[in-house]
Design a protein around this nucleic acid. Sequence first.
DNA 1: ACCTGAACACCGTTCAAGT
DNA 2: ACCTGAACACCGTTCAAGT
Lengths: 173, 173
Amino acid sequence: VLAAALDIVDREGLSALGFRRLAAELGVTTMAPYSHFSSKEDLLEAMTTHVLGGLEDTLDPSAPWDAQVEQAMRDLHAALTRHPGVVDLIVARAEGDRLNELRDVLLAVMRAAGLDETESADVLLALVSYVLGFVVLRRCRAPVKVRRGSEHAFEYGLSMLIDSLRRRAPQPR
Amino acid sequence: VLAAALDIVDREGLSALGFRRLAAELGVTTMAPYSHFSSKEDLLEAMTTHVLGGLEDTLDPSAPWDAQVEQAMRDLHAALTRHPGVVDLIVARAEGDRLNELRDVLLAVMRAAGLDETESADVLLALVSYVLGFVVLRRCRAPVKVRRGSEHAFEYGLSMLIDSLRRRAPQPR
DNA sequence: ACCTGAACACCGTTCAAGT
DNA sequence: ACCTGAACACCGTTCAAGT
């Protein structure tokens, strides 16, 4: 259904995704997708929620709080790397709100660890900013093929932020 | 000339920018801009280089290395905040290469401070990723009006990264 | 060198109609 | 409920022509 739409935008970019093209890929007429999505905005929103939704379900509540935060950022990074086209959707359609559920869960985790609310929000914004900006920049340099050593570079920046976070926490480790 | 194009994309977004609209704003015909830019891609590229080019000239070579890096990130953040539409251009047209000159200058600064080459590259990628992702996320939450307390949140995440950077440098302070 | 005007291909969307 | 086909408005771009 919308897996075909994700395939198109991941492989050929957002500009390649159109109702005519999508319909041809599915073997139907141009107007057939309108039965499922009332507009292109609807289609793009469904795509982002499909990729970004449910990210908060994969983390392990029994793990230490800093490991939970770190793993959540890795999962977000993996989701955006698996679907590079979604990055364009986030920027172009301002669909950043899809990350709200994940943000709320992580906020609760950090508050339980003793960080106050405004500081937790700042830290979380910094982390998500880093992850999102990282995939945007990698997409600029390697439009098609996957870049070598990319995972190492991602982990390096992530460790910078996580180290800072641990140091600012009230009860370290 | 292309200040009008920047005005349109900053105020109403990338989708509002078209040759017909731009020409009407300037009081000429639809095809007149084609005399200056051979295609829309040309126009967008000229816009990004106009905003992002020359960022490396504003930093002070006599300042401490960490202050130079920090200030460069503030300048980049300010440029992207002043022209929110350019963020869309970076992602949509993959114009991340416009930051290469700034990157090279900062790489030299960090190497002079004693950091090795691959570590400097990783740090720089992390910093630029953070700045770019930050403005992308803010654009999602405040499409039009400027968000209150945004500068404080930006400085918080920036300080996390800069603190980590100072701690990893061979000769601290 | 810079601008004009008409035209072409393309895309999102509407509508009336089919099963 | 889901699909079809023709049509409309819009946009990037080409081209021949004007100054």
